[in-house]
């Protein structure tokens, strides 16, 4: 048996109409079953464009110059319509308000199932399943415009999950949300990845919340894939910019967890570490590790 990657991009190139720069230039990569890929890059680097090639929004929805081939489960999607691919790939967008249209949360989740003419009993069963999975019971009869951003995004995820696609794509899904809701959403996504074996591709500006779950990082810069691989490998790549490292806060949190659990630091230092508020810079951090700062 030969190995077929779930997603395979071959020399994917795209240039928007009326734009002289290429949005994507010869992008090649393969994603395996069950991978959690984090797509990192600055604004305008081509993250969204890359994701939109995965379900045919590009080139079917945007006019421009398209080259290369996208394969899902070994099959090229060039001839397929975006709507047809909804069973294979679930897409969740950035703005929670602009992707919902139904009267209630429940009906929003039912929408893709209705599109595929699934019988009513089956829709009901599937909708109930998803509502239970994402803990949406309290808001299932509410309007998608009367709930919080985090709940809206959960609704959108529920709707993308309705057809049970093996691949889930998240285009900066958490960027409109508060840090708390964002953390909650990322946890849910990680759960879907681990427990249901969904292959996940998620694009983000920052790594803090996701780093602990991801299996691969793809770093994209002005339309070119500069680095792709396991997190440790990519973060050590010389092409990878320092600004896109996880913030020190997150390092600190992780360190704190370690000191709590294993007590690897001497008693004195551990106490110091936990007594001092979050360090702002690395120097700051080193200073009180060394014990230079008694208390604040």
């Amino acid at each position: 048996m030969t190995y077929t990657p779930v997603i395979e991009l071959k020399n994917v190139t795209f240039k928007y109409k009326n734009c002289d720069k290429f949005a994507l230039e010869n992008v090649n990569f393969q994603v395996a079953q069950g991978d959690f890929v984090l797509l990192v890059g600055y604004s305008g680097s081509g993250k969204s464009t890359l994701l939109k090639t995965l379900n045919g929004l590009i080139p079917h929805f945007y006019s421009g110059l398209f080259g290369g081939d996208v394969k899902l489960f070994g099959e090229s999607i060039a001839e397929k319509k975006t709507a047809q691919l909804a069973k294979t790939i679930g897409f969740v967008f950035q703005n929670p308000e602009n992707q919902l249209s139904a009267l209630t949360v429940e009906r929003e989740i039912a929408f893709p199932l209705e599109n595929f003419a699934i019988p009513r009993q089956e829709i009901r069963r599937r909708v109930n399943e998803i509502i239970a999975l994402l803990d949406l019971e309290k808001i299932q009869d509410k309007s998608p415009f009367a709930i919080s951003g985090g709940e809206q995004q959960l609704t959108a995820i529920g709707s993308a999950l309705a057809l049970d696609p093996p691949i889930l794509v998240f285009d900066e899904t958490t960027s409109h949300l508060s840090p708390q809701s964002a953390t909650k959403i990322i946890k849910k996504i990680a759960e879907l990845n681990r427990e249901q074996g969904k292959t996940v591709i998620l694009s983000e500006h920052r790594l803090d919340r996701n780093l602990q779950y991801v299996t691969k990082i793809a770093y994209i810069e002005s339309g070119q894939l500069k680095a792709f691989g396991p997190p440790r490998e990519v973060l050590h790549n010389k092409n990878y910019p320092l600004e896109l490292y996880p913030r020190i806060t997150s390092l600190y949190e992780q360190l704190k967890k370690v000191t709590d659990n294993f007590a690897i630091l001497p008693e004195k230092h551990r106490k110091q570490l936990l007594a001092v508020p979050e360090p702002l810079t690395i120097d700051d951090f080193l200073l009180f590790i060394k014990g230079g700062r008694e208390s604040v």
Partner: peptide, 26 residues
């Protein structure tokens, strides 16, 4: 316009008119 474009993308990605006939929950 931006909103309607994004909404169009979102419903397209969820199988808008994938079948000739459709069913309804209600």
């Amino acid at each position: 316009f931006r909103r309607s474009w994004q909404l169009a993308e979102a419903i397209e990605s969820r199988g808008w008119n994938a079948m000739k006939k459709r069913t309804f929950l209600y």
